[in-house]
């Protein structure tokens, strides 16, 4: 979670300048299709939903008032559409942190996010997430990883699927950092990075 950022600055400037020297080691394609075991259940609480709704400034009563939720046909308060990301991203962390995959998570930023819902997440749900690596690509020196998270409830019923695209930016070459015109710009490619040459 802590290395997820959304900045999308100039991509791979460094590797375009020095492609033959600094071409990054591509991630192992054999990880495509790999699935990770379901996470321990996350229990969705009314107060957590309320807290999230307040944080996004959304006063829709269906997030707070069980009566309002029942009036729309739900058994309890429901969560805003993006609430479930907190749960799926935690699950994706197991993939990102898998030492066998070898992703440098200090260089990872969030590229795309998509959800497909069978039903809204609601208070009382006990949700598990099964993550699968859908694709691994190398674009302009960056590793691009697509992770699918299948979210199921305690009965094993599908609730929502989350697709998360993560981009691990190419490591910048040490040479480019000495007086290179693009140095300042290049620094933005390492959002969240403590790992500076």
């Amino acid at each position: 979670m802590q290395q997820c950022a959304e900045a999308a600055p100039d991509q791979g400037a460094a590797s375009r300048v020095y492609p033959e020297v600094f071409a990054p080691m591509a991630l192992d394609q054999s990880f495509v299709g790999r699935s990770y075991p379901p996470t321990e259940p996350y229990e969705v609480g009314r107060e957590k939903i309320r807290e999230f709704a307040e944080a996004i400034g959304d006063d829709n009563p269906v997030y707070r008032d069980p009566g309002a939720a029942r009036a729309l046909g739900y058994p309890d308060v429901i969560a805003p559409p993006t609430f479930v990301f907190s749960i799926t991203y935690r699950a994706a962390g197991e993939v990102i942190g898998d030492p066998a995959l070898g992703l440098d998570y200090t260089r990872v930023v969030h590229g795309d996010q998509r959800f497909a819902y069978r039903r809204p997440v609601r208070a009382g749900d006990r949700l598990t997430v099964s993550s699968t690596i859908e694709s691994i690509k190398s674009l302009a020196g960056n590793d691009v990883l697509d992770i699918r998270g299948e979210v199921r409830d305690a009965d094993g019923e599908h609730v929502v699927t989350a697709w998360t695209k993560l981009v691990a930016r190419a490591a910048e070459p040490p040479a480019a950092r000495d007086g290179h015109a693009e140095d300042a710009r290049d620094r933005t490619t390492a959002v969240g990075a403590g790992e500076r040459v």
Partner: peptide, 14 residues
């Protein structure tokens, strides 16, 4: 909000 069946974005600028 429970009527949303799909939602996706790309993060292009901070």
């Amino acid at each position: 909000p429970g009527a949303v069946v799909e939602y996706g974005v790309r993060f292009t600028k901070p």
